Simulated scan of single mutants.
Amino acid sequence: MSRILLLIVAFSLFSCKESPSELDFTTQELYGQAIGTTYSIKYFADSEIDIEPQVDSLISLFNESMSTWVPNSKINQINAGVDSVMVRKEFKEVFDYAQEIYRKTDGYFDPTVGNLVNAYGFGADGQKEKIPSPATVDSLLQFVGFNKMDITPANQPESYLVSSQQPGMYLEFNAIAKGTLVDYIARMLENKGVMDYLVEVGGEVIASGENLEKQQPWNVGIDDPTQQPGDRKLLTVVQLKDKALAGSGNFRKFKIDDASGQEYVHTVNPLTGKAVPSEVLGVNVIADNCTLADGYATAFMAMPLEKSRRLLPNLKEIEVLIIYMGTDGALKFETTPGFKSYLKNQAL
């Protein structure tokens, strides 16, 4: 899922009575590769805390459990039809959240869309150039429907089995697992007594406490979806404290069919099987945890704008910004009532 979030990490000193060096904390940062993307962590603690081994362990856990890009991961074993693949609590947590979002968005968030994602060449099977025919898309829709899958306890502690009513389904959590990894890293930090931090994985962010260097909430930028490649431009900045933010957009990950000139995007509509652009250019979601923010951002990216307008008043657990192109060719914005309270400059 193409991200439309840019992490703004401020390294300048905050002008106040005390300089950062005089304050009673240490500033620590960590960067690296994680589940096919990058991560960054900034946190403040009373003393030096080495979290890199724990972060590496969590990344390995998620790769081996839920990455369709890791050949023998648990999810790939399930997709290959291996009998009695046992998964652990982190897999069940993602599965349960995905089912919740699937139900509340009337199926527009659907992790069983993987066969279609692969068919359009955006998946892990490596076939990047193909464009499926309408007949192929229709035939693959039979394998889509998260309501056809279930997870039940196994005969070992904290272990579960995933089953489906339809053989041949392809499950992928790429549109939600980064958010869950963010949440797991945040929990690890809090278990170590760290309460002021910013964790980002592939553009998905959770912010706790404050940026103590600046003595203010964390600033996170939202990209302008009309920007040109190599010319990054911010649309606005939000201030976060004890909240998560995730975004989805198709402006970085798409392809053009040479034969027809048709543009295809990586966000596949699970109800129609189509991967064509809509008027919605980007979605940003604020929630209490990054798993919810990540999943809902994908759902509203796949959803027609009018459908979003009807559903959002019933989803009190999230705040949403939708960026879309108006019929006049101008960039337009719609937000839930609470989203604007997070904007740093209130300029949307």
Results as ranks from 00 to 15, higher is better:
228 Q>L: 12
297 A>R: 05
3 R>W: 06
34 A>N: 01
2 S>G: 15
305 L>F: 03
289 N>E: 08
39 Y>E: 12
57 S>I: 01
343 L>E: 02
110 D>S: 06
348 L>M: 00
293 A>P: 04
133 S>I: 05
247 G>W: 02
15 S>C: 05
151 I>F: 04
242 D>R: 14
57 S>E: 13
224 D>V: 03
292 L>W: 04
62 F>M: 11
323 I>V: 12
84 S>T: 08
168 G>T: 10
157 P>S: 06
275 A>L: 13
206 I>C: 11
19 S>Y: 15
240 L>E: 04
11 F>V: 13
289 N>Y: 15
253 K>E: 12
69 W>N: 04
219 N>K: 13
285 V>T: 13
91 F>T: 15
260 S>R: 09
136 T>M: 10
76 N>K: 14
140 L>T: 08
106 D>V: 09
103 R>D: 10
143 F>N: 07
17 K>G: 07
336 T>F: 01
344 K>A: 02
342 Y>M: 00
280 V>Y: 03
277 P>L: 03
168 G>Y: 10
37 T>G: 04
22 E>S: 15
120 Y>R: 00
175 A>W: 05
28 Q>S: 08
16 C>N: 09
19 S>N: 14
142 Q>C: 06
30 L>D: 04
328 D>W: 06
135 A>D: 14
215 Q>V: 07
154 A>P: 11
26 T>R: 05
268 V>W: 07
215 Q>K: 10
305 L>S: 02
215 Q>H: 10
105 T>K: 02
180 T>N: 13
175 A>F: 11
59 I>R: 06
297 A>G: 06
124 A>W: 01
179 G>A: 07
206 I>P: 08
234 L>R: 05
57 S>Q: 12
278 S>G: 10
52 E>D: 08
91 F>I: 13
51 I>L: 12
75 I>F: 05
266 H>E: 14
124 A>E: 02
44 F>R: 11
184 Y>T: 12
27 T>K: 11
76 N>Q: 14
252 R>C: 01
55 V>H: 03
201 V>S: 09
295 G>K: 00
217 P>R: 11
181 L>F: 05
123 G>Y: 03
206 I>Q: 13
166 Q>L: 09
156 Q>S: 11
197 Y>W: 15
339 F>P: 00
322 I>Q: 02
90 E>N: 11
249 G>T: 12
34 A>T: 01
36 G>K: 01
72 N>M: 07
281 L>D: 04
207 A>Y: 14
119 A>C: 07
188 M>A: 09
4 I>L: 03
169 M>F: 09
22 E>D: 15
107 G>M: 09
97 Y>Q: 07
321 L>Q: 00
156 Q>G: 06
170 Y>C: 14
180 T>P: 09
8 I>N: 14
96 D>S: 07
289 N>C: 08
41 I>D: 00
257 D>V: 10
90 E>V: 15
183 D>P: 03
190 E>I: 06
99 Q>Y: 11
253 K>M: 06
66 M>I: 15
312 L>K: 03
179 G>R: 06
90 E>R: 08
158 E>D: 10
94 V>K: 04
141 L>A: 07
186 A>Y: 06
48 E>I: 14
281 L>Y: 03
318 I>C: 02
254 F>Y: 12
95 F>N: 08
248 S>M: 03
279 E>Q: 11
284 N>I: 01
234 L>Q: 01
203 G>A: 05
170 Y>E: 15
345 N>D: 01
228 Q>D: 06
65 S>W: 04
267 T>P: 04
66 M>F: 14
219 N>C: 12
124 A>Q: 00
203 G>L: 00
53 P>M: 00
216 Q>P: 04
